[in-house]
Each structure stands twice: as C-alpha cells, then as structure tokens.
Amino acid sequence: MTRTAIQKPDYEAELRKAGVRITRPRRIIVGILTDTEDHPDALEIFRRAVAIDSSISLSTVYRTMKLLEGLGAIHRHAFEGGPSRFEQAGGDHHDHLIDIETGDVIEFKSDRIEQLQNEIARSLGYDIVHHRLELYGRKCKVK
C-alpha cells in the first residue's frame, strides 16, 4: 500500500482558459491550493488567505472554489461529520483514510483493494465505472 504523490496543478491557467479574470484574491487562493498537501475546507483556505491579505472575503473563497470545481480542477469531498473539503482533480486514483480524532485525511493506493472491488463487481455482473473508498479510523494504541 502506498501513499499517493501529488503533482502541482496550474489553477490560474484553468481559470484563464475558462475566461475568468485572475484577481489578486483569486491568485492568493489558487496559490494556497497549489501549495497545500492536505484537504482543506473553505474556512481553512479563507484563514490562510486572510493571513496573506486581510481584505479577502469568505464569499470570494467560496466563489473561487465553486469555479474550480465546475471546471473539474478540484474535487469536493463531504467526509462524514465535517465540512466539505477540497483536493486537486486528476492524477492517479486513490482512496482516503480519515482520522476521526484529528480530521487528518491520508491518501493511499492499494492494488489489492482495487482488484478485490473489481472481482466483487464482476461476480455481481458489473463493471466499475467510478468509486470512492473512505475509511474512518483512529491511530492504534501502542502497548
């Protein structure tokens, strides 16, 4: 089982291609998204943006996230018990393990899990066209 590697996206190019103007607040927001390796929610993105420029509004963050999601540049995840969180789209398929105590989201890839899912779908007469696996857990206590 491996953790997935993240390739840096070019969100500004995606927005320009869609004819969206790149304002200073948007540039800051996409810079935060480009540099992040976690799965922040909109409020966390807002906190990081305001630390750079206090004039950025939460609504600007929401609008920018909605634009990027609509362009297919980011994915929105609604992990159980929390606000929607975001990650870059594209790249290799991966699954998520969510730490229920810290909220940390760990990306991983398992060929065994993928093979088992395909076997199950085939045995039921289906081909998988899309799936999302989310595991919820807490760190094992060492004795």
Rank of each mutant, 00 (worst) to 15 (best):
G81I: 01
A51W: 05
L97G: 02
V129S: 04
L68C: 02
F86M: 05
Y62M: 12
I98T: 06
M65S: 03
H94I: 02
S123I: 10
S110V: 00
R47D: 11
E101L: 12
G81V: 04
V61M: 05
K66V: 04
I98C: 08
G82P: 00
D53S: 13
E80V: 12
L67G: 00
A78M: 07
L116E: 10
Y126V: 04
D104S: 11
S84V: 06
I52S: 11
I106M: 14
F46L: 12
L116Q: 06
L58E: 08
A51T: 07
Q115F: 09
P83N: 06
I100A: 09
I106D: 06
V129Q: 05
H96G: 07
D95S: 09
T102K: 10
F108R: 11
R85Q: 12
G90N: 02
S123C: 09
S59M: 14
I52R: 15
G103K: 01
T102N: 05
R47L: 14
I100Q: 10
H77Y: 14
V129H: 09
Q115S: 06
I106T: 11
S110W: 04
R76P: 00
I56H: 02
R63P: 00
A49P: 02
S55Q: 11
L71N: 02
S123A: 14
G72Q: 01
I45R: 09
K66N: 08
E101R: 15
A73W: 00
E114P: 00
H77Q: 09
R122E: 15
E114L: 08
I120K: 02
Q88V: 10
H94T: 04
G82F: 05
S110M: 04
V105A: 14
H94V: 03
A121S: 12
S110A: 03
R85E: 05
S84E: 00
F108G: 06
D127P: 04
S57R: 15
L58Q: 11
E87D: 12
S110Q: 04
H77R: 12
A49Y: 01
V61T: 06
K109G: 05
H94F: 10
G81L: 05
G90M: 02
I128V: 15
H75S: 05
A89M: 03
I45D: 00
M65G: 01
K66I: 03
